[in-house]
């Protein structure tokens, strides 16, 4: 069984691939495919990855540190709030078939994710197994089950990136 650290790192990579696949669809003018890929990316990110972090991982890390107002988790939560708005704006850009606006938003989101993911992987994830009473089994299973949902038949995980 993979560790919670490995599962969360892999989820970052999986979501990056989905985001890039959507970007490629926009560049080709395949707007319906782009909308579908963005929806899957957003679902995986907001309803899976962020949800698990905000409800399970951050609180466990804060409890381990004995402080529920940590600069690290406060910054990461703020990053999530910003990203949620950017995802909505990307969806609107696709709806308006505005490739220029989408491209600018994509560049911003990828830059945010680069900083955000690196911070999580360096400062948070290595401590999770110790912080969580079950070493992160439940959180890991939740993430993996979301990944399986995203890969249901007819929703191929293979992207021509």
């Amino acid at each position: 069984m993979k560790s919670i650290e490995q599962i969360m790192r892999h989820d970052h990579e999986r979501l990056d691939v989905l985001l890039e696949a959507g970007a490629k669809a926009v560049r080709k003018g395949l707007w319906h495919e782009a909308a579908d890929l963005l929806q899957r990316f957003r679902h995986g990110m907001v309803d899976g990855h962020m949800m698990v972090e905000e409800t399970m991982l951050f609180p466990a890390f804060e409890a381990r540190e004995g402080n529920d107002d940590l600069p690290l988790t406060a910054l990461l939560r703020k990053g999530h709030r910003d990203l949620r708005v950017f995802f909505l704006e990307m969806e609107e850009a696709i709806g308006a078939r505005d490739a220029e606006e989408y491209s600018a938003l994509l560049s911003t989101v990828q830059a945010i994710l680069k900083h955000h993911d690196a911070k999580e992987e360096k400062e948070l994830y290595p401590h999770l197994a110790e912080a969580l009473s079950d070493q992160g089994q439940l959180a890991g299973q939740t993430i993996l089950s979301r990944q399986e949902t995203a890969a249901l038949p007819g929703r191929s995980q293979k992207f021509d990136v």
């Binding site: 990053g79 910003d82 708005v85 909505l88 704006e89 600018a104 911003t108 945010i112 900083h115």
Partner: peptide
């Protein structure tokens, strides 16, 4: 709640 601007430094990007 939407962004009027996006700012970027070497260590931070946000709306």
């Amino acid at each position: 709640g939407r962004h009027v601007a996006t700012l970027e430094s070497g260590k931070w990007v946000g709306g």
